[in-house]
Write a protein that binds this DNA or RNA. Structure first.
Lengths: 131, 131, 131, 131
DNA sequence: GTGGTCTAGACCACG
DNA sequence: GTGGTCTAGACCACA
């Protein structure tokens, strides 16, 4: 999978990495059980330190998106993905609120906001399973 | 306006402050031209550092959401609010993507995601102008 | 609080640190809301790297035993401590099992095993609140 | 005997194997003098590396829980099992302490802790000799 | 001054 | 070869 990083971004590299991998899982480019590159090789590939990759993997592991097998490697969670907990729904709403608020205060109509959301969501599910 | 801060949040306090004020503008609790508390009084009210309030106001001013007059104080932008630039649309999509991706990975249906977005957006516009 | 580390132990240093701090909370030497040393000063005090302390603090934070305030410092959880989840009970039993099994296979009587457990547990609660 | 392994566990596989066999001895499923599968067959049965089984057997042999004969194979210690050394008592207490401490911090009552210990211990001795 | 992030490089346990 | 741990040292955002 191709990883796109913006080293100038305000977002930490490991966060971008987490996002990219979750995105890969969401749109089907990363299938359950599929192996991920080792921390070393991924770090070398994208030109960052191995510890940064490690941190991203640790987060994904803690959240249940990937599994780390002892001294073997890393795979996309083959079993059930982390589910729709209330904690997640709550976090999602907390993160949507400032986005919606800025859109509203800039004068964005409900219609356009929904269109943007639909596009974003649709782009993930459209190709699902083809990857 | 009541400001809610989470001092343990990963989000910097000044960012939370920026969000809260934009939210206030979005839902109408803060009307154009309405005066905001001075840096000093707001800092004292919510028990945070002067610099923190200052940084939040600076960002809001730079983005055009408020005006800062040397003597007269701080007011919500009385003229045209910052508009729907392509830069904003692009940023909005970039920020929506990881949220949508995690929702999809966790098995959220399009329907529920839209419902959450609608709720969040609606909560802002429902009371608009009444505040 | 005095931290005792065994650098030769099979247990990672950060794990020992986590244990020591939880022990301090359990026996009352560390009261809710009490500040903990900064990562730098603690690392210097006990002669280890700041990252190792950081990892211990991160784990304690993730589990809810401490709070990390932005750019201020670290305090023992002032509110409700992490509770008695089923996940914890399950983990506790999983960790007790091999201990009990080795004791049994070495011929330890139930009576002595319980006595050891009672001593260990009692040593924590005996001085509670005097710390 | 059925061996249960968790390949995602933080515990090394060989440690899990050691635990399982000691547990088998403790609860009577493995009687003194009873033959154990060869390194090769056990490794094949549970689908792990030869070296891993070998390491587990080496530890069990070093501690005195099993005997390894060049040709005759591996048997559960037919003579006296490793006994209740002070070294073991000390290790046991060191391993119980962090468990008790976390339980106390999480607000577990002495009563429930003992109940869990009793259940765990009892589960081993209840069926002893029947296996 | 605080924690957060990132880099670089090392050694070890594991399988 | 893999991830896990530890060290050392640097820069930054935050308050």
């Amino acid at each position: 999978m191709i990883i796109r990083l913006d080293l100038q971004s305000e977002l930490p590299i490991y966060t971008q990495l987490v996002h990219q991998i979750i995105e890969g899982i969401a749109d089907g480019r990363l299938a359950p059980g599929e192996p991920l590159p080792s921390v070393r090789s991924l770090a070398a590939d994208i030109g960052i330190n191995l510890h940064t990759v490690n941190k991203a993997y640790s987060i994904l592991k803690a959240e249940g998106f990937i599994q780390v097998h002892r001294q073997k490697g890393v795979v996309v969670q083959p079993g059930p993905m982390p589910g729709l907990t209330e904690e997640f729904r709550s976090r999602l709403k907390d993160q949507l609120r400032p986005l919606a608020a800025e859109a509203v205060s800039r004068g964005m109509e409900e219609e356009e906001f929904f269109r943007l959301v639909r596009e974003t969501f649709g782009a993930l599910t459209r190709n699902k399973g083809e990857g």
